[in-house]
Each structure stands twice: as C-alpha cells, then as structure tokens.
Design a protein around this nucleic acid. Structure first.
Lengths: 246, 246
DNA sequence: TCCGAAGTGTTAACGGCGTTAACCGTAAAC
DNA sequence: GTTTACGGTTAACGCCGTTAACACTTCGGA
C-alpha cells in the first residue's frame, strides 16, 4: 500500500510524463488534454500545479535533463582520457537531438525565461545541459591547457558573471584565475547555439542544414581554439560520423 | 470616392497594422482582438485572410521590412565610402531592435517557418533583413577585398546553396567565383544571431547581456575576418557607441 | 472510536480563442 | 433593372485556462 504522499508524487510524475508524451506526439500539452489522457478533468491538475505555465516549465526542465542524459551517453561512448572526442560526440548529439525534436528544442532552448514564472528561473539555474557542457569544455582544457584570457582582461560585467554566475554553470571547482575558461565556454556555446537554432527553425538553407556544414565549420573553429589543431582531422571526421547517428 | 478595390486594400492594411499595434502593446493579435479594435467581428477578417497563421506571417513579414528600414537608417548615418562603419551600425541597430522588441524578434527570427503556411515560405524568400545585411557585407568586401574561399573548396551542399539560394540572399550581382562571400555571410550571421537570440530569450547572464560584451566580441572577430584589423579600434568604439543608441 | 480536517476529485461556469455556416444588405456589373 | 459578388453580421462548435462550489475519501487526534 502506498502512502498518500507517495500516491501524490506518482500522480505528479504522471502529469509531467503525459505532457511530454503529448508534446512528442505533436499535440499541445494543454491542461485539458493532459487530464483527459489520464482519465481526469482539467481542474484536478490544479491540485498539483499552480497553472499551465508552471507545468510547461517543469516539462522543459525534465526534457533538458533527459536530453542531457543522451548527450552524456554520446560522450561516454568515448574514452575518458579523450575529452576532445567526448566533447565532439556530445555536441553532435545535441544537434541531432535538436533537429529530431524541434518542439522540445524550442521549449527548452528558445523560450523566453525572463517573463516566465519564478519556478522556471529557479530550475534554469540548475539546468542540466549547461552544467554538462561546461564540464566537458573544462575537461578539454585540463588536458590541453590552452591559454585562457586572464581575469583582468575581461569586461567587468563578464568578470562578474564568470565569478558568480546566475545561469547554469558549474564553476565552483574552477579557480578564480581560470575563470576565463567560462568566458570561452560562453562564446563557443553562443556560436553553436546560433547555428542549431537557425537550422531547427528553418532559417537556414535546407541543403546546408542537411549537410551539417555550418555546424562542422563552427566546431572546427573551436577545435583550433581549444588547442586541438593537431587533432583536427580526426575530430572533424568523428563529428561527421557522430552527426549521422550513434 | 474610393473604389471597392481600394477600400479593400485599405481595410487589409488596417488589419495588419492593428495586429502590429496589439503586438507592440503586449497583447496577443488574436483575430477577435484585431477585429474588435477595428469595430468588426472576427469572422469578417476571413474575407481578407485565410486563417490566423496567415495574418501572423504577414505581420512578421512587415515587421521585418520595417525593422530593416531602421537598420538601413542606422547604416545611412555613416558615409557611403565607409562600408565597415555602415555594417557595424546596422548590426548594432539589429541588436538594439531585438532587445527592445523581444516579441517581434521572436516572431520574425525565432519562429519555425517550415511547419508554417506556404505564404510564409514565399515571403521569407524575399525577406528584407537578409537582403540588406548581405548587401552590407558585400560592400565591405568590395572595399577590403578580403580573401574568399574558392567555390571548389566549399562543401558541395554549401556550393549549391550559394549558387542558387532558397533563402533570403541577394546574390545575383555576385560572380560565381565570388560566391564564397555568401558562405562567409552565413557564418557571420549565424554567430551574431546566436548571441542576440540568447540575449533576447534570457539564456545569457543579464550582466553580460547588458554589457553587450559577447556581441562586441563576436563582431570584433568578424572585423578581423573582413580584413578590417587595422580599423579594429575605431570600429569597436563605434559599436560601443551604436549599442547605446542612435 | 468518532469527528473534524485535510486532501483529491467532480461539475458548472466564465471569458477567450480559431473557425464555420447561414444569412443579409449594398454596391458593382451586365 | 435585375443579378451577382462582396463584405459584413449573428449563431454556434469545440477548443483553451481558470475559478467556484461541492462531494467523497482518508488521515489525525480527542
């Protein structure tokens, strides 16, 4: 027999799961649709969720978490002592996931969070994908020891941000003098994000999107930037392979 | 006295205009809201527009056109023989516009067009901002004559895309051997787009966003790439100024 | 053990949405 | 001057988020 608290938690989990199922099926995860699929009526969901937006935020958070598990799995298919391959595999998995799940991508990565409810802002602070990708970049840096911009060279606002981040970043284990790494991470993430967002939203020539050329180009640039120029050929080939699928 | 066709066109224009007004006021441009503000009922709008999505697409197109007028005005505040300054001013205006009009930005630049109606795909093909920005990059290239990747070095899919573009690009006046310029444009646009989209959607540390550091950083990179390294200091200073406002 | 309280669901309803069908006066066209 | 197309209406359907009022179950404590 399950206690009331357990039952409540199960129902809550089922609400989020049902929402994700609907989203994956291409239908809108409206409160009514979610409730109906669970054999409930819409107002019942208000016992578990403050409003519709909060449910959407929860779903976005969970999608991010699960997608990150996929990125991690892609990285883990490569040796722990080959952080560059792990990083390449992870971001290739990210792009594949984004193109395969445009609705989910839009929800997690291309949704305004500022005007969103409080809960989203809290959740996004511990967002999974951000933590994971910064970690991979950190691993590459530990291995390659590519030069970092010294803290005093950073824009004051950037220095503040990398010293005491507000958004997903797992930087506690990075010494203050090495926080230039976080700036490099932000720059690299912005360029990869731009390509993938253009691709997912159809603002890029479909032939270029399908070829992945722009994504590979950006990645190749950061390979050099990460001091991996010697490994460039191998990593680009690896990326080409990873882009096709696991 | 106005003919029936004229009257019809006026009403049509007022529909789009009213939609934009509602959007700017932070309200959703629903058919009912638009009609109500015009003193009509919602079904009347179906005499002018096939469905709600088509209206949204039209609005997105017009917003893009008008925003581009703003970018052009920013560029025109600089001498015709200073294409670098014109380009910097235009993209600074683009960023300012995006941050000042997040809803409009999301509509025009961060909306799926693939799953959209046919009309959007037609409209986006002649989208204004794309044409204008490629033109500015072209002007810089004519002046600086920075090296282009030769066509045979391009990915086959990219070569196809720059030879016969499907998406907004105004390349008819660019010789086939110089189409590598379009590839450079795509890459630079992707990186600027990534930064601005992150900023607008609140996925970037607000302090970094407010400082504009990431945007300036990306622009500085492309300044070098465009053979404008000698002019770098001036152009970065210009960008800093332009970012604050006209 | 019984009773109150909390928890979890219901139905009914409000206002808003996109959209369609049926209708109707007016203005253009022949 | 009749006909027809146009541009509007009202009514209605089925969605949506959300709230209020109510009912049933279950738990906790006197």
């Amino acid at each position: 027999m399950s206690s009331r608290a357990e039952k409540r938690e199960q129902t809550f989990a089922e609400i989020v799961r049902t929402s994700r199922t609907l989203l994956a099926e291409g239908e809108d995860p409206s409160l009514r649709a979610v409730a109906a699929r669970m054999g409930l009526t819409a107002p019942a969901l208000y016992r578990y969720v403050a409003n519709h937006q909060e449910l959407v935020d929860l779903v976005a958070f969970e999608i991010d978490r699960d997608a990150t598990d996929g990125f991690r799995a892609a990285a883990d298919r490569h040796a722990a002592d080959d952080p560059a391959a792990r990083l390449v595999a992870a971001i290739a998995a990210f792009r594949r996931w984004a193109l395969d799940h445009p609705r989910e991508f839009a929800l997690v990565f291309a949704n305004p969070v500022a005007e969103s409810s409080c809960i989203r802002r809290e959740l996004v602070t511990v967002a999974s994908s951000g933590h994971f990708l910064t970690g991979l970049v950190h691993d590459v840096w530990v291995r390659q020891d590519f030069p970092l911009p010294p803290p005093e060279s950073l824009d004051p606002a950037v220095l503040e941000a990398v010293t005491d981040p507000l958004l997903p970043a797992d930087v506690d284990h990075i010494a203050q003098v090495d926080r230039g790494l976080v700036w490099i991470y932000m720059r690299s993430w912005a360029s990869l994000y731009g390509v993938v967002t253009l691709e997912v939203f159809g603002h890029l020539d479909p032939r270029v999107r399908d070829s992945g050329a722009l994504f590979v180009d950006v990645m190749a640039f950061w390979i050099d930037e990460f001091g991996l120029g010697d490994d460039r050929e191998r990593l680009v080939a690896l990326m080409q392979a990873e882009l096709r699928g696991p």
